[in-house]
Design a protein around this nucleic acid. Structure first.
Lengths: 125, 125
DNA sequence: CCTCTCCTCAACCAGACGGTTGACAAGGGT
DNA sequence: ACCCTTGTCAACCGTCTGGTTGAGGAGAGG
């Protein structure tokens, strides 16, 4: 299948399931940053931050280039589209089904009106 | 422990980071289903599916009601908004920064053209 | 009543995850 | 040359996770 050792979508969702990593992504929307910069706000070791960045990188959310001893981290915002597409798809489907269900219920109400006697003003949702 | 165990956004992302769970959500857009229905396509025990559903429920993506011995599972699509809002916010920010950077680079190019000559003979110390 | 269906709870296990510390590679600054 | 800054790699540790099996609760239906 299209499962290349856990697909990217899974990795993206997993990466963003950590508040610290979400925070880093938020920070990166303001511009590239070094590992040290990103580590500063948090009370964890630099190595931990390095690991977080590896997770983000493996998810394709981030790229790291080389600049002297520093490794500037850059946000790759296109990956967001992957999620948005997935979400929108099922969100839309759920809404469609919802309106179909509404229509169905309306129809059932109509039928009930025809076959059975209806109580007055029964505008049940 | 600042929030209630872990915040909902984290739980939602974590819940959707599993392909099986994403698949279940996809299936639920077509209508409510029982645990057995949901378990059928996968080669795992019913208990495992039950656990998956608990994760989805804790994330607020799903609700389970009671109907005889069965437990129909219902998708709560509103939770998607939580993610979409988060994503869109930073996606937009990243794009804005991108265009600002573009503009800045253009301006820098203009200035370079004015103040300096070309790369030739640049014995810069 | 007893049984069968549908599902959850509890215990357990292997592996992934987030964190730590220690060592060290890479590259300036002096 | 030396050292200091910046960051990664590796090993280790406690916890969470996804899976299993076994036991059992809640109803429908003989």
């Amino acid at each position: 299948m299209s499962d290349q050792r856990t697909d990217q979508l899974s990795r993206v969702f997993a990466a963003l399931s950590d508040p610290t990593r979400r925070d880093m992504v938020a920070r990166l929307t303001e511009g590239d940053a070094t590992v040290g910069d990103l580590a500063a706000p948090y009370d964890v070791s630099l190595q931990a931050v390095s690991k977080h960045l590896k997770v983000l990188e493996d998810a394709g959310l981030v790229t790291r280039t080389r600049e002297a001893q520093r490794r500037p981290v850059h946000l790759e915002a296109e990956v967001f589209d992957l999620m948005t597409k997935w979400i929108e798809r099922y969100q839309r489907q759920a809404e469609e089904r919802f309106s179909r269900l509404d229509a169905l219920l309306d129809e059932m109400n109509d039928r009930t009106d025809q076959t059975q006697d209806n109580t007055q003003g029964g505008t049940a949702s």
